[in-house]
Design a protein around this nucleic acid. Structure first.
Length: 272
DNA sequence: AGGTGCACCTGATGGC
DNA sequence: TGCCATCAGGTGCACC
């Protein structure tokens, strides 16, 4: 489910409400991607700080007690609830506080909740260490993108998705950004010209920004922490539109597979 | 070092 | 209705 816009929309939907809350209990459901790595008892009584986002990860600082790194995987979502309903089959992590319950629902369990003493302490430091620039970081521009892509033989689509150059664009937004920039997703990354790198960097920011404004993309189950769905799927130009006419030129949108993931593009508007 | 494929897990959907 | 194959918003890791 969640790419950067969905994670950021989720963060904004509960960060203020949970900040300053006192942890009163933790409940672990079925195993997630990694063990939490801490005795839940040791976190009781700590205060929640200001929730941060890095890439598609969220960092929940716990005053004097390190913090929790959360990832939503493919199917995860967070809810911040006033009441404390009994956990359902896919509710695998509950953080009870005196201001409400932060609950992770994740059917596929590719998500994670991992404790660390600090953001720069293991295992979090390693998980975040390989991440590229934030798309809205002023250092992320065509110059940076072009330099980072030089010599790389993978397709530009896969290079975007890898997250080691710029974070945040997953399968939907990588496709959409490449469409916006008019770039064929199969183009070898190292062959992208400098002017087109400028265009692509701008497109990544624009697409992610538009998705953020739309409250994210809800294909089936994405909700923010108050249950509000996103609407960016209404504006998607190529993602999920195989065989339908390109909204710009009416050529049928194509679907191909790159790195075992679907890529959608317009064979006429997007050039090598 | 960069590229490739696999692994993790559950549910929805479509064809026969 | 049942069964099987395919697909899905992510990413760390082993291996070449």
């Amino acid at each position: 489910m969640p790419e950067l816009p969905e994670v950021e929309v989720t963060r904004r939907s509960f960060a203020d409400a949970i900040q300053g809350a006192r942890v009163t209990g933790l409940r672990l459901g079925k195993p997630l991607r990694w063990p939490i790595g801490v005795d839940p008892e040791t976190l009781l009584g700590s205060r929640v700080g200001s929730t941060q986002r890095r890439g598609k990860y969220l960092w929940l600082p716990l005053e004097n007690r390190g913090g929790l790194l959360m990832h939503l995987g493919m199917s995860g979502s967070l809810a911040f609830l006033e009441a404390t309903p009994a956990p359902g089959a896919h509710d695998h992590f509950d953080l009870h506080t005196d201001r409400g319950l932060l609950r992770l629902t994740d059917p596929r369990r590719f998500g994670a909740v991992v404790w660390a003493a600090a953001l720069d302490a293991e295992p979090v430091a390693t998980l975040l260490g390989g991440l590229g620039l934030e798309p809205f970081d002023e250092r992320f521009d065509g110059l940076h993108l072009h330099a980072a892509l030089s010599g790389r033989r993978v397709s530009i689509k896969q290079a975007l998705l890898a997250g080691d150059i710029v974070v945040g664009a997953g399968n939907i937004y990588a496709c959409e950004a490449l469409f916006m920039a008019g770039i064929d997703p199969r183009l070898p990354a190292g062959k992208l010209s400098r002017p087109r790198a400028d265009k692509l960097a701008a497109a990544v920011r624009t697409v992610l920004g538009q998705a953020l404004e739309a409250g994210g993309t809800t294909l089936r189950d994405f909700r923010d922490a108050h249950g509000v769905a996103g609407s960016f799927q209404m504006q998607a130009q190529v993602y999920g539109r195989e065989g339908l006419p390109c909204l710009r030129c009416a050529t049928p949108i194509r679907r191909i597979v790159q790195g075992q993931r679907s890529t959608f593009f317009c064979p006429s508007c997007q050039k090598r």
